[in-house]
């Protein structure tokens, strides 16, 4: 890939916006919040953030909000992320590596099923035990 100019970036965006119209439903109002405090960074939160963007782009999902926050108080299970999908419980996932990040997009954001083996803190413990929240 040659070094892109701002003008080329602008054109690429216009091209992409025309494509977006058709698939505005998937991922609508979903939010991913990545814990990017010192503890998160040390445990590898940055490649996780990068993987979320890569996989969402791969799946052509353009409208998930991806943001960062500081430490969520769960330093022992970093990297931690929070996923908010309308119609599903808000979940804090812990020990999220790049493979888990991919799984969260495929299973939680797209498949609408919880990734039970990485859930911490939320929702309540009795829900975590159930299989995928089905």
């Amino acid at each position: 890939m040659a070094k892109m100019t701002l003008e080329e970036l602008r054109k690429l965006r216009e091209k992409k916006q025309n494509e977006i119209q058709k698939r505005d439903i998937e991922g609508k109002d979903a939010r991913i919040i990545v814990g990017m405090g010192t503890c998160g960074i040390a445990a590898g939160a940055k490649p996780v953030l990068d993987t979320f963007l890569e996989v969402l782009d791969e799946k052509k999902i353009d409208n998930v909000s991806v943001t960062q926050t500081g430490c969520m108080g769960l330093c022992y299970v970093e990297p931690t992320i929070e996923v908010i999908v309308p119609g599903m419980p808000d979940v804090i996932y812990g020990k999220v590596d790049v493979e888990t990040a991919r799984k969260i997009v495929e299973q939680h954001i797209i498949g609408k099923q919880l990734v039970t083996d990485h859930m911490f803190d939320r929702p309540a413990a009795d829900i975590i035990k159930k299989d995928g929240g089905k």
């Binding site: 690429l12 969402l56 909000s65």
Partner: peptide, 11 residues
């Protein structure tokens, strides 16, 4: 804010 915009920025 959204994944689509950030993917372009990433590229």
């Amino acid at each position: 804010e959204t994944s689509g915009t950030l993917a372009l920025l990433r590229q």
